Amino acid sequence: DEFHFHWNGRDIRVRGDSEELRRLIEAIKRGELSEEEIERAIEILER
C-alpha cells in the first residue's frame, strides 16, 4: 500500500502498511502532533 497526503505544502508518499503507520498518518491529518514531531516522522517514513 501507499499512503499519500499533503502536509505543509509538501506532497508526501509513504509505502508500507502497518497499524502503526496508519495511526501516525491519522494523527498527522488530525493535527495531533507538533510540527517538529511531524517533520521527524516524515523523515523516517521517507527512507
Rank of each mutant, 00 (worst) to 15 (best):
E43T: 08
E19R: 11
L24I: 09
G31N: 12
G9W: 01
I25C: 04
S34N: 11
K29W: 14
D11V: 15
R13T: 14
L21I: 12
L21Q: 10
R13K: 14
I42N: 01
E36I: 13
V14M: 05
E46Y: 09
E20H: 10
F3E: 03
A27G: 08
I12Q: 00
D1W: 05
G31Y: 10
E26P: 01
F3Y: 13
W7H: 02
R15L: 10
L21M: 11
R47Q: 12
E20T: 13
E2M: 05
R40V: 08
R10K: 07
E35S: 13
E19C: 05
R15Y: 10
E37L: 06
A41C: 04
E46R: 07
R22S: 06
H4I: 15
E20V: 15
R10W: 00
E36R: 10
I25D: 04
I28G: 01
E46A: 08
I38C: 03
S18D: 07
E37T: 04
K29D: 06
R23K: 08
L21H: 11
I42V: 09
I25Y: 15
R22E: 04
V14P: 02
S34C: 04
W7S: 00
V14N: 01
R47W: 07
W7P: 00
W7I: 02
A27N: 09
I28N: 01
E20P: 13
E37W: 05
E26I: 15
R13S: 12
E46H: 06
N8C: 06
N8Q: 09
A27V: 07
I12M: 03
E26M: 15
R22L: 11
S18M: 06
D17L: 05
E46D: 08
E39H: 08
R30K: 12
N8F: 03
H6Y: 08
R22A: 06
E37Q: 12
E39S: 10
E37F: 06
E20A: 13
R30W: 09
D17S: 10
R13F: 15
E46V: 10
I25R: 03
L24K: 01
R47M: 14
L45Y: 07
I44K: 11
D11K: 15
N8A: 06
E32A: 12
R22N: 06
W7R: 01
R15D: 13
R47S: 13
R40I: 08
A27Q: 14
R30M: 11
D11G: 04
R30G: 13
E36K: 12
L24P: 00
H6W: 08
L33Q: 03
R23Q: 08
E19S: 12
L33P: 03
F5V: 01
L45M: 08
I44H: 08
S18L: 07
G9P: 00
D1K: 08
I38M: 13
E2T: 07
E2S: 07
E20Y: 14
H4Y: 07
E20C: 13
G16L: 04
D11P: 15
H4F: 11
R40A: 10
E37R: 04
G31M: 06
R22Y: 15
A27L: 13
G9M: 01
E35V: 13
V14A: 04
R30I: 07
R40M: 09
E46M: 14
G16A: 10
H4L: 06
E26Y: 14
L24A: 03
I25K: 03
W7Y: 06
R30S: 15
S18T: 14
W7T: 00
R15I: 11
N8K: 15
S34G: 07
F3C: 04
E35R: 12
E39T: 11
F3R: 02
R10C: 02
A27D: 08
I38E: 03
F3K: 02
G9V: 00
S34Y: 04
R10N: 02
G31D: 06
W7A: 01
R15W: 13
R10P: 00
V14E: 01
R47P: 08
D11S: 14
E20S: 11
L45H: 04
R30L: 10
E35K: 11
E46P: 03
L33K: 04
E36M: 11
E26H: 15
E43M: 14
E43Y: 08
S18G: 08
E39V: 09
E39L: 10
E32W: 13
S18C: 04
S18H: 07
I42L: 07
S18I: 07
G16H: 05
R47I: 11
D11I: 15
R13W: 15
E26C: 15
I28A: 03
E35H: 15
H4E: 04
E19K: 11
R23P: 05
D17T: 08
G31T: 03
R10E: 02
R23T: 09
E2Q: 05
G9H: 02
R10L: 03
R10A: 02
E35M: 12
F5S: 00
E43N: 10
E36P: 11
E19P: 14
A41V: 10
E26Q: 15
E32M: 11
I25W: 15
R40Y: 12
K29R: 12
E39N: 10
V14C: 01
R23E: 06
S18N: 10
R23M: 12
N8R: 15
E2R: 03
V14L: 08
I12T: 00
I25V: 13
N8E: 03
W7V: 02
S34P: 06
G31L: 05
E36V: 12
H6D: 01
E39I: 07
E43D: 12
L24W: 09
R47C: 06
R15C: 02
E43P: 05
F3W: 13
G16K: 05
D1Q: 10
D17N: 12
E46I: 14
D11L: 15
E32L: 12
E36D: 11
I28M: 07
R10V: 03
R13C: 06
R22Q: 08
R13I: 15
K29V: 13
A41H: 05
S34A: 09
G31I: 03
E20M: 13
W7N: 00
E26N: 15
E2N: 08
G31H: 11
R13M: 14
L24Y: 04
I38P: 00
I25L: 13
W7M: 02
R40Q: 12
F5L: 04
L24V: 05
E32Q: 11
N8D: 02
R23V: 08
D17A: 08
E19L: 14
E19I: 14
G16E: 07
W7K: 00
L33S: 04
I42R: 01
L21V: 10
D11Q: 13
E19F: 15
R47A: 13
E26K: 13
E46N: 07
N8M: 09
I28W: 13
I44W: 15
F3T: 03
E19D: 09
R30Q: 11
A27C: 04
E39F: 11
